[in-house]
């Protein structure tokens, strides 16, 4: 069973719109289709501007999609409000401090989903909050404090606790550890792994840090310029990358013991979203690009077990 199914999801933003003219359409997400299996962690990597945040916001209903279909636990979500989404899918934000209202106590923050989404009474809420706080290793005395009194790692635990309070089974983790120090990052990642086992959760883990994504994911999806360029098992996707962009990403990550040298590529500018290329969007940077890459945008093709890439000239071996 799939926890989440996305078909042909597209988001077009209009830019330069004035009172009198329609403006230009910029496709931030271009016909993405993928599914997330129940209980799986799907890692999503990509650089700034690849559409990963737009995708995430559409999945939780914070942003309406332009086209396409989102199916959560088998049900199509067409005109659902964030409120209906909220019971099925929740979001953990990148910046833990700014995701908590500075003028509310932690108890008030924790009570909102219980009250609004589940209509629980006072006693029931208190019991539930205690349970959740115990499972994310936070002390209950924190409940009467305000967000600014917490360190980044603690605030992120509170953000996770809030997402758990909504009792959704799918969590979108949008760069949940990139604002944290490495020693704290590991604490939060391990907590997320424990919670997943305990509550049978499904994760979409968005990050720009390949090593972190590889360490926590079952499968990884690589985005470039609003499309999926490669998706495959976490243990194979960076080691045996098929798409030249994935290869470039993997070679760019600084690794202890690897000599410093910028990986080979032609240019480094992203394509212009206002004037997207007709062929493969990576062709201009790709050292393997041939004629066909300039004209035809490749579709995802299976290139190994559960390993798909959108490339005319995939890397063999």
């Amino acid at each position: 069973m799939n926890a989440l199914e996305v078909k042909d999801l597209t988001k077009t933003f209009e830019v330069g719109k004035t009172l009198f003219s329609r403006g230009l359409g910029v496709k931030a997400v271009r016909r993405m289709s993928f599914e997330v299996r129940d209980g799986e962690t799907l890692g999503i990597v990509g650089e700034s501007g690849c559409g990963k945040s737009t995708l995430a916001r559409m999945l939780v209903g914070l942003l309406p999609s332009t086209e396409g279909e989102i199916k959560i636990e088998g049900k199509v979500q067409d005109k659902a409000s964030p409120r209906e989404f909220g019971q099925m899918i929740q979001y953990v934000f990148q910046d833990p401090i700014s995701s908590l209202n500075p003028r509310k106590t932690i108890r008030q923050i924790m009570e909102t989903p219980l009250k609004r989404l589940h209509g629980m009474g006072k006693a029931e809420r208190d019991k539930r909050i205690s349970e959740i706080f115990a499972s994310v290793n936070l002390r209950e005395e924190f409940l009467s404090r305000y967000p600014h009194e917490f360190s980044g790692g603690q605030a992120q635990r509170i953000g996770i606790a809030r997402a758990l309070a909504a009792a959704a089974r799918i969590l979108i983790l949008d760069e949940p550890v990139s604002a944290l120090d490495v020693s704290v990052q590991a604490q939060v990642l391990n907590l997320l792994a424990d919670l997943k086992l305990k509550f049978g959760l499904t994760y979409l883990f968005i990050s720009h840090d390949l090593a972190v994504v590889e360490a926590v994911s079952d499968r990884v999806m690589v985005l470039y310029f609003g499309t999926i360029v490669e998706v495959g098992p976490a243990d194979a996707i960076f080691k045996q990358a098929k798409h030249p962009y994935t290869k470039l990403l993997a070679n760019s990550a600084p690794v202890v013991g690897r000599p410093l040298e910028a990986p080979k590529q032609k240019g480094d500018e992203l394509p212009d979203p206002l004037n997207p290329p007709s062929g493969c969007p990576f062709a201009k940077r790709c050292i393997y690009a041939t004629e066909i890459c300039e004209t035809i945008d490749p579709a995802l093709m299976e290139m190994g077990e559960g390993h798909f890439a959108a490339c005319h000239n995939p890397i063999r071996g």
Partner: peptide, 23 residues
């Protein structure tokens, strides 16, 4: 030593990470 252990390295596959307890 502990800090280095916290940093995941690419190529290690899915695994538990070492953390330093406390702040």
């Amino acid at each position: 030593k502990r800090l280095m252990a916290c940093v995941p390295e690419l190529g290690g596959g899915k695994r538990e990470l070492h953390a330093i307890a406390g702040l």
